[in-house]
Structure formats: structure tokens, C-alpha cells
């Protein structure tokens, strides 16, 4: 990897002062499970790396009046052992259980999961986020079996985040800090489909740090279901997270979000609305799942992912009420 300056700030203000105003100047280091790989491949060549693990206020999981606050540097293993998360947010636990391996769960952070770069092999091989060559997408015309089924030109990679879909289903927000202050953003708006090669796939700016995640306290039946080729050391092929607000045995309102099928997590509002007033059973779940994947536009090699996404939605719904 390219040589870089290293900073180990102890306060958020200090860390924010060390960031650059454009991408490429500085990268934020938490677990490093994505960043070190990116640097070894020269996909990221920051002049400075800012370690944020020494900043106490970025850690911890706490109950607040509005719900639960999860610090950005909380590791996946810490999240998995949190009684607070286990009791209210099985969708987050089930997403965390799928993450790569014991070592990655010990190292990787929830903030890092949201900020990790796509796994698209064109991007990872240096062809850029949109993998365009001579005005044409290498993905749309090339090896695309793990790519988006809800993609739109020019973005065909899939968001790699495991927690993104679950956090969106739960109505969570992220807090982003810069030297000029902080802003809160629904997780649903944190992920963006880039329009140009200079854009990123998240709303974070180069001078900002994702400091915490705020999950609202509302009581929901929630679940995540992942479909994966390998049980470890890999990202899923398709996932779904659901959160159901219930009136007794009937759904009052629902949120359904699919993961690994588009450049952002993909919400399925029509399928979610179709559940209102219903009791979830196999037939209802199957129907909603079919609605959820109706708008899919698979590429030349990944039509199979439509069925996987559908199965993920159905199973997540059934898991939420089981």
C-alpha cells in the first residue's frame, strides 16, 4: 500500500480537523477490514489515515429517550453480545450473524459496515465505481452475476452493507459530524446511487465522520433473512429485512427492505402496504415477496437473484412473526 500519515486523535473535534475537503486526502480507520484491503489494492491511496477507535464518544450502545444509540465504532461482536439489541432488534442480530467470520466480527464496526465500499469486482480491480469504458458499462456488458437486479445506468454494483437494510426497515438515522456541526439523516437517505464517477455511494462528505446510529424505540416484529452461497467469508447474494408494527396478530404497517440487489438497499413500499390489516402466513408472505421483486431488471447473468430476493423477503416476513 502507499505510504500515509497516521493520526490517532482522542477527541471527535481533533479527528474532524484532520480530515480533508476532498476524497483521497484522508481516510477514516475503524476496524480496517475494508480500508486496508482497499489500500493494498491501491483503490484508496489516502495521504492520511485517521484512526477513530481511540475516541471514546464514538463507542457504546445506550438506551436513550428516543430509542437506542449505537456508537459508530461498536464492533459487530459487541453488537451481537448486547442484551439491548437482542431484546428489541433481532433484524440487526440476524444481519450481524451473517457477517464474514469471527475475526471480522471482532474487528469490523457498524459504522464501517455502512461506509464500506462495494464489492463489485470491476471496482475492486481499479475500473472505478461505475466501471465505464469508452462510454459503456463494463458491468452491463460483462461479468455481472453478482451485480444489481434493481440497478439503473450507470450504477450496477450492489451496496455491500449488511446492516443498511435492517436499519432502514427499523427507521434508523445516522449522525454525521463535521467541523461546522452535525446533521442527522435517515439511513434510507445515507445510501445514494452515484450518477458520476466522482460521486460516492453514501451521503457522507469527505470532511465528515459517521458518529452514531439512532434506532427508534417503536415496538416492531423485525427480522433479517440472508441468502448466501457460502456460509462464511463472503457477502450474501440477496437479503431482506422487515419491520412490522402490529395490532394484535394483524399488521398495522410494514417496512420491507432488500439488500445486495441494488446500488443502495432497495425498499419495497408497495409490497409493504399490501400487508396492512393482514395476518402474516405463508400465502400472504409469498404474495408480498412477489410484489417486492416486481420491478427487478436483472442483467444478462443474474436473473437467478430475483428468485433469491423473493425468497429472502418471504422468509424474513415469516421469521418476523415466528
Amino acid at each position: 500500500m502507499q505510504a500515509f500519515e497516521y493520526a490517532n486523535p482522542k477527541t471527535l473535534q481533533e479527528a474532524l480537523g484532520l480530515l480533508g475537503s476532498s476524497w483521497g486526502e484522508a481516510d477514516v480507520l475503524a476496524g480496517g477490514t475494508d480500508l486496508l484491503g482497499l489500500m493494498k489494492e491501491y483503490i484508496h491511496t489516502p495521504k492520511r489515515v485517521v484512526n477513530i477507535k481511540g475516541i471514546k464518544e464514538l463507542g457504546g450502545i445506550e438506551k436513550t429517550s428516543a430509542g437506542v444509540r449505537i456508537g459508530a465504532t461498536v464492533t459487530v461482536a459487541e453488537l451481537l453480545s448486547s442484551g439491548l439489541i437482542k431484546s428489541q432488534f433481532p433484524a440487526l442480530i440476524q444481519a450481524a450473524q451473517g457477517i464474514a467470520s469471527m475475526q471480522i466480527r471482532n474487528m469490523g464496526s457498524i459504522g464501517g459496515d455502512l461506509c464500506q465500499r462495494p464489492r463489485c469486482w470491476y471496482f475492486r480491480s481499479g475500473y472505478g465505481l461505475l466501471a465505464m469504458k469508452d462510454g459503456k458499462s463494463l458491468v452491463a456488458n460483462g461479468e455481472n452475476r453478482y451485480h444489481a437486479i434493481f440497478g439503473r445506468a450507470p450504477a450496477y454494483f450492489v451496496s455491500a452493507s449488511s446492516f443498511g437494510p435492517a436499519l432502514i426497515a427499523l427507521g434508523a438515522k445516522v449522525k454525521l459530524a463535521s467541523q461546522s456541526g452535525t446533521r442527522e439523516l435517515p439511513v434510507a437517505e445515507f445510501f445514494v446511487a452515484p450518477a458520476t464517477e466522482d460521486d460516492r455511494e453514501i451521503a457522507l462528505k469527505p470532511n465528515e465522520i459517521l458518529t452514531e446510529i439512532l434506532v427508534p424505540a417503536e415496538t416492531t416484529r423485525n427480522a433479517t433473512y440472508e441468502v448466501r452461497q457460502k456460509e462464511a467469508l463472503d457477502w450474501p447474494l440477496a437479503t431482506a429485512s422487515v419491520a412490522l408494527k402490529m395490532d394484535g396478530g394483524k399488521v398495522r404497517s410494514a417496512e420491507i427492505v432488500m439488500g445486495h440487489v441494488g446500488p443502495t438497499p432497495v425498499r419495497a413500499p408497495k409490497a409493504a402496504r399490501s400487508l396492512t390489516g393482514k395476518t402474516i402466513n405463508e400465502t400472504v408472505a409469498e404474495k408480498a415477496a412477489a410484489t417486492a421483486v416486481k420491478g427487478a431488471r436483472p442483467l444478462s447473468q443474474n436473473a437467478y437473484k430475483v428468485q433469491l430476493a423473493k425468497a429472502a423477503v418471504k422468509r424474513a416476513l415469516l421469521r418476523a412473526v415466528s
Partner: peptide
């Protein structure tokens, strides 16, 4: 805790 030493900076 088990970690990957290849993905940890020595300075860290």
C-alpha cells in the same frame, strides 16, 4: 480476541 494480523496496522 481473534483478529487478522494482515488487516491490522502495527501502529494501531
Amino acid at each position: 480476541k481473534a483478529v487478522y494480523a494482515c488487516t491490522t496496522l502495527a501502529i494501531d
